[in-house]
């Protein structure tokens, strides 16, 4: 009896709608997706190929050197970076590491390029904030696997859909922190810049963004970490790199290989995290 009440409305075909919607988008924007897939895919291959051309030792040394200087001439991170990268090389995962790095780098860059302006828009307009905030919540809470499906529909398989899925998953922190950072700039400073006759752009670039910088950097740091965490998931749709090693180890129940590839991701994560963080701290002083 009560069940009948609940069944009063037949099942809403949300799944079908979504399917139709995705199909429509795929068809309508095919002229856009195709060239993106092709050119961007080529570009990514170009980047990772070039990284592969550089002798690993040079990369290890350069990373260690940068680590040495950005941590204020301390040895810790430099030594860790060098040893960590060497270990990845030693395990025969160097090529995968470069692929993963390319994926993370490009996904993060795109996230920042898209996320910061959207965050600025959000901080300036209450309406924009009201609209964007729930979208961000949706993007972050929807299981990341779900993004893989339209990603494949739009871009096929490979690195490009991997970047696309990472982008959706990893952009929200940059948007949120940019919004937060700008809203947190003290009211008196904003008033001061207005009282001296700043235009909106001058206020943004001379006062708000510099003041919000460390908050925005914290957001970018999170974005990079999230992009990295998408690496394994994106490998399910054919993105190359360490993630693919983990996935194939999982499929074959090879605990050893899985662990080694996992360690590679951890090492990359720690290096990237410390790099983005200390870049931030240094400028705070």
């Amino acid at each position: 009896m009560l069940d009948k009440l609940l069944d009063f409305i037949p099942e809403i075909p949300i799944a079908d709608w979504t399917k139709e919607f995705t199909k429509d988008i795929t068809d309508t924007f095919a002229f856009l997706f195709e060239p993106i897939k092709e050119h961007f895919g080529n570009f990514m291959e170009f980047v990772s190929d070039n990284l592969m051309l550089v002798p690993p030792l040079i990369i290890m040394l350069v990373v260690a050197l940068i680590a040495f200087f950005i941590t204020g001439k301390k040895l810790g991170l430099a030594v860790f970076s060098f040893v960590g990268l060497w270990l990845v090389y030693n395990q025969g995962l160097w090529e995968h590491l470069m692929d993963t790095f390319t994926l993370v780098l490009l996904a993060s860059l795109l996230s920042v390029i898209i996320g910061v302006p959207v965050g600025i828009l959000m901080s300036k307009s209450r309406i924009a904030e009201a609209i964007i905030k729930p979208i961000l919540d949706f993007m972050q809470t929807m299981p990341a696997f779900v993004y893989l499906i339209p990603a494949v529909a739009f871009f096929g398989i490979g690195m490009v859909p991997g970047v696309f899925a990472s982008l959706i998953f990893a952009t929200p922190p940059t948007v949120r922190f940019t919004n937060l950072g700008i809203r947190q700039v003290s009211k008196e400073l904003v008033e001061a810049s207005e009282a001296f006759g700043s235009t909106g752009m001058q206020k943004l670039f001379k006062v708000e963004l510099p003041m919000a910088k460390s908050t925005i950097m914290a957001g970018i740091n999170q974005t990079v970490m999230l992009a990295l965490s998408m690496v394994v998931i994106a490998s399910m749709i054919g993105a190359p790199g360490l993630g693919r090693e983990v996935l194939s180890a999982l499929q074959r129940a090879e605990v050893g290989t899985g662990f080694v590839a996992g360690i590679g991701i951890v090492i990359l994560a720690i290096i990237i995290d410390r790099f983005t963080q200390s870049a931030n701290e240094k400028k705070d002083e």
Binding site: E188, L189, E191, A192, V207, P210, M211
Partner: peptide
């Protein structure tokens, strides 16, 4: 301004 509002 009261609390100076200098740009740090």
């Amino acid at each position: 301004f009261q609390r100076f509002a200098l740009f740090p």
